[in-house]
Design a protein around this nucleic acid. Sequence first.
DNA 1: TTGTAAGCGTTATCAA
DNA 2: TTGATAACGCTTACAA
Lengths: 335, 335
Amino acid sequence: MTLLDIARQLGLSVSTVSRALTRPDMVAAPTRERVLELVERQGYQPNAIARSLQKGVTRSVGLIVSDIQNPFYSGVTKAIERVASSNGYTTVICNADEDLTKEANALRLLAQLQVAGVIYASSGYDAESLRELGRWGVPTVAIDRATSLQTADSVLVDNLRGSREATEYLLDLGHTRIATIAGPTSLTTGRDRLEGYRQALLDRGIHEIPAYVQIGDFKEASGRESAERLLSLQVPPTALFVANNEMAAGVIDLLRERRVRIPGDMSLLSFDDARWARYLEPPLTVVAQPTEEIGSIAAQLLFERLAGRTAPRARVLRSHLIIRGSCAALAARQE
Amino acid sequence: MTLLDIARQLGLSVSTVSRALTRPDMVAAPTRERVLELVERQGYQPNAIARSLQKGVTRSVGLIVSDIQNPFYSGVTKAIERVASSNGYTTVICNADEDLTKEANALRLLAQLQVAGVIYASSGYDAESLRELGRWGVPTVAIDRATSLQTADSVLVDNLRGSREATEYLLDLGHTRIATIAGPTSLTTGRDRLEGYRQALLDRGIHEIPAYVQIGDFKEASGRESAERLLSLQVPPTALFVANNEMAAGVIDLLRERRVRIPGDMSLLSFDDARWARYLEPPLTVVAQPTEEIGSIAAQLLFERLAGRTAPRARVLRSHLIIRGSCAALAARQE
DNA sequence: TTGTAAGCGTTATCAA
DNA sequence: TTGATAACGCTTACAA
């Protein structure tokens, strides 16, 4: 069913029907009524494809995340979808699995779909795909991870501060043998969360023990393996700061298996406040990120761009430490 | 950048360039080389919008779920996205929030986008939007919840059996005062999970106590409120079967607040195996649904349809009971 | 107020 | 093997 069908049945031209639908005030009331009535009765839906082709723009935005099942990203996604749809935009979501090739594919796809803008959590700071994006010139908002793309807006979290606060909290509890499981150093989230940990230790004059710094890949398995290495050290740490929720899950599994009590034998603190964190026994102390806010601000920045703003804007949000029960004062270990 | 740009720079016609890209064998090798080289160098991306308009079909599928943040749906979504993208299709995801109006909007949107097919977890068995869908005639797969749409394929879980098994398990542990928090009776998931509970009780000749049957709306708050009512009963239940993960979260919060020990004071069993279920202390015994399988089968059915199959197919998957630590034999309460 | 016609970028048909 | 041309469904000057 097309405009032409409607037009013919009414003995009108397509343009009149089109106008009746998109600029009702430009068409005589009786004509308009007739059109609207028939459109309703026949359940006519305008073809957005044809409209987009004509207008040269689509009312859709692309979103690339690395794992839609990760509650951090699904929270961000939900907020973006909400803001986008309230602006009349569709969200096309692509999963990239932390895989640069998949990212590049997703990006190509979005380009072909002519999305009006892209919100992007890139797995590579300086990936080739980003240069493509720059060349393509579509409005872009980087979330979660900083990128080298100068023209992009960004919504990031102050990871360095968040992890420094977390580490300081552990220090305040009397720990000195604090280990960390960091993310890939190719990612700003990985680097910054490690850097915050280091700064906190340095500030207190604590010498960094290389074996206490494990580098994971933000996935569950690497958390588990890193924890395993930490546990097998001659002098294992008394506290552990994990750089994201997935790796924390792996750590917890291992700790349970090995009957390492939390926080009795090991204080545990992790970035990201997944739903399960508060159901853990004891509930997990975490650095929470404002997922909802990240998503809605990212979407807002994008729509500002679409509305004409040209100067890139960068927003840095605060994380906050939620103290629950997984960290204990060091003295408690002696009891 | 369009085909015309490429064509002009090469002194060729658009048709030749188009062919070089889509039917390489129909164009002379040297010409093809020249085209491909320039396309590559300029980073030309074909306009999928224009292509779709011309072809009359898009390579995208629509997905409507009620909450992308619910791990059940994000699991299903991830699988669908994976299968779709491996078939070269984009997934357009819409959140409907269990709201029939939002569902109708989402559906209208998908119609306008001319998606090739729709995968749909509808909040209403017989919603008006479903009739629209039928009229529109796009290939549809119903997931999670059955619909009245005769032409649709479906991928459902045997909810009745799942909840009957769960209830029987509680009965086997010696419980007789078993309550349930069910979902809305407007949904097949709500009805079937309640029916399974009833059948199990009936089979053992246990009389149903009306106050033990609470009807929630599958959201966290209603789980909490229902549990509150159950706890305030003169003779509270000794075991509780909750019909989904979100409501279970609400129940757990309340139980903790009231210092009701699980499973000491109350055995707890829930539908859905959220990530947090196994991290709970004690780990939650659940009826797990095969989310990954639901998603991938749904997508496969859709692609079969797109490939030409016309007869509707219905798949019913088995859930399975995962026994963890949240249910105890009744005797244990006396200790 | 309405209609005619051009054009968005692509593919497909037909002719050269 | 290549090119001219029409078509997909819509919007929008411009003309009537």
